[in-house]
Amino acid sequence: MFLTKKKISKQFRIIIFFICICCFLGCNASKKDTSKIEKDNGIIVGFSQIGAESAWRTCNTRSVQEAAAARGVQLVYDNAEQKQENQIKALRSFIAYQVDVIVFVPIVTDGWDNVLQEARDAGIPVLVTDRKIDVENQSLYAGFIGTDSLKEGRNAGQFVLDTFESKRDKDHINIVELFGTEGSSVALGRAEGFREVLKDHPEYRIIYSKSGDFLRSRGYELAIEFLEMYDDIDVIYSHNDGMTLGAIEAMEEKGLRPGKDIVIITIDAQQAAIDALRGGKVNCVIECNPKTGPEIIELAEKLAAGESIPRLQYVHEEVFYETDDLSLIEPRGY
């Protein structure tokens, strides 16, 4: 069981944190947001986000920040800028200044055992969100809340089967996969779930799979590459909307019709992807819900109070198909 330290007053901890974090992190205002620490009686939550690489990620961060403000929770926010070493440094700073709860989005699955043991030794519970981790001692963190990447991959695979089920004019269906960040649980889950559905159908072949690191620019670069390598591509399965939009740009530059010449499946459900679905440039959009802030803060409050939480909690997600009544989809907000 995690025990919250009470020897130092909340206000004193906040003052010390605010003074020392400037020294510890070099007062880099472009990277860290510690200026809005309020002196009230709410719990203190250290939140380490992996970055701001997409509209999805920005929405996810905003959701947590808004939920914390609404509940009177003091949120100390850190942007790791896609570097695990930055994130470990941030977690250690949270431990040093005795926040009540640590919440973090792990960039990759491995390499967290030592810092989480330090948090456990300090009596600070840890909540993992969005991406999962792999540690030897599962008790090093209290629980996970986020999206089900394995299910997202399965939904993508099932759409491919359903789409080409009646098309018997080809011996093989050639699939290109734009993979997410190497070593991240979401990329691994989306790849595994997709292959799980297709494993008994050898006619569906993944002819190209490379990491685009969830970035639009990399999606564009990879599309330029695979469009030069292959003339016969039936499906593009992209692990996120950013890479998808980059690939669409590259296709259109080559005179191809996205969604018609090549079937496109994407994950996230940003507004831009829904607009592309409406425009016939994408055939299936699988939601990855970023608006997890209220659930995260509720779980953090329970942990701070010494209560137990579920080990695994998934948020609700939907799948949007080209055959749906797309006018019913409400604005995404990201």
Rank of each mutant, 00 (worst) to 15 (best):
R57M: 14
G26W: 14
N28D: 03
C20Y: 15
E38S: 07
S30K: 06
A55R: 09
S54I: 06
F24N: 02
F24D: 03
S30I: 07
I50N: 08
N28P: 05
G51E: 11
I50E: 02
C23Y: 15
A52Q: 01
W56C: 07
W56G: 08
Q49K: 14
G46I: 00
K39H: 07
I43A: 05
R57G: 08
R57C: 04
V45C: 00
D40Q: 01
K39A: 07
W56N: 14
I50S: 03
A29S: 04
A52Y: 01
F47M: 11
I21W: 11
C22S: 05
K39D: 14
K31F: 09
I43M: 09
A29E: 09
A52C: 02
K36C: 13
I50R: 13
C23H: 13
C22R: 08
F47H: 10
D40S: 14
N41D: 03
W56R: 13
I43V: 14
N41K: 05
K31T: 08
G42E: 03
D40A: 10
C23M: 01
K31D: 06
C22M: 11
I44M: 03
I37K: 07
K32M: 06
S48F: 01
C27R: 15
T34M: 00
I43G: 07
S54T: 02
G51M: 08
S48T: 02
G26A: 12
L25D: 15
I19H: 09
G42W: 09
N28V: 03
K36E: 10
D40N: 06
A29P: 09
S48I: 09
I37D: 00
G46L: 05
C20I: 06
T34R: 03
K31W: 05
A29Y: 06
G46E: 10
G51A: 04
A29R: 07
I37A: 04
I44Y: 00
D33S: 10
F24Y: 08
C20W: 08
C22V: 06
S48E: 13
F18W: 01
V45S: 00
L25E: 11
E53P: 12
I50M: 08
K36P: 10
S35I: 14
E53T: 08
I37N: 13
I21L: 04
I43S: 00
I50G: 10
I37F: 13
E53A: 08
C22L: 10
K31L: 09
I50K: 10
R57S: 05
S30Q: 04
G46C: 06
N28M: 15
W56Q: 07
C22D: 03
V45P: 00
G51T: 05
F24M: 07
I19S: 10
T34W: 01
G42S: 12
C23N: 07
F18L: 12
F17E: 15
V45D: 00
C27Y: 10
F47R: 13
I21H: 12
E53R: 05
S48N: 15
W56T: 11
D33L: 07
C23Q: 09
